[in-house]
Design a protein around this nucleic acid. Sequence first.
DNA 1: GGTAAATGCATAGCTTGCTATGTAATATAT
DNA 2: ATATATTACATAGCAAGCTATGCATTTACC
Lengths: 148, 148
Amino acid sequence: MPLTRHKSAGYMTNWAARLFARVIDRKLKPLALGSGYLPVFFALSDGGSRTQKELALGADIEQPTMAATLNRMDRDGLIIREKDQNDRRITHIRLSDSALAHAAQIKTIVDQVNETALSGLNSQERQVFLEALTKVTAALSQADDPSK
Amino acid sequence: MPLTRHKSAGYMTNWAARLFARVIDRKLKPLALGSGYLPVFFALSDGGSRTQKELALGADIEQPTMAATLNRMDRDGLIIREKDQNDRRITHIRLSDSALAHAAQIKTIVDQVNETALSGLNSQERQVFLEALTKVTAALSQADDPSK
DNA sequence: GGTAAATGCATAGCTTGCTATGTAATATAT
DNA sequence: ATATATTACATAGCAAGCTATGCATTTACC
């Protein structure tokens, strides 16, 4: 009895995302890093600092998710947290020196995985694919929160 | 200081997948269902039974993930598990009557979310998008396990 | 027929995501 | 000035994914 798979856009997108994470996590494992750290790395790779809220907004994830990610990165010695002097609610976050030293290598790994993923697409197909993802995220963001 | 977002294919795919799950989970919440149940629902919506291994293969997820999903579905009264008589390692899984009664409604909800997500794409763009996702998953599966 | 290999499922422990809610600090409004 | 809002972050608890490992059970091989 064959499985009748429901290969909708949602299913395929979920599958592709899991595969991206799996492949990237495997390549990051020797560096003791996880795919969840990437948005923070890229946001802070200029050596500057951002608040937790700015990082969450930039990564399009919820605040408690970013808080948990930063806790793991703190545990792993990747970030420095500094309290704001004027507004004691705010914490400024920046990469530790050792983390910053790995930023270029991480970008290389991520670029390689992206290139592998898109290797079967020509440049026009890649463009349509990325534009489609932009339109899909816009449509779903709208459906998620119609006020936007 | 503006955030320099790294909107790669991997990042956008991850974001789209999270949005799909968020929107679907919200629509399934009144039914006390989660997006993780969907592959099982679709695989069993013909009223037949499958083994845990068949379900995991059909959903492209690992066996322990499927085991956890089935435990939640069991807890929620959605599935029936029956031990195989000939081979006591095997468990046959089918939807409960009440779960089966919801299958059509669930498919309608999922179809609606997919339509919403793709609403900004014309039919040619949709085709390229789905083909691209197929090629991307194939390339990443290959990278994940080169023996395939 | 007995050992070894393979198979199917369970368990443990982790990450990355979510919602709901709490708390302290700051800003606003009467 | 005080009560109320808002803001920034923390905490709790869960879902859905992963790897690594264990445990029966069945198959395969001498």
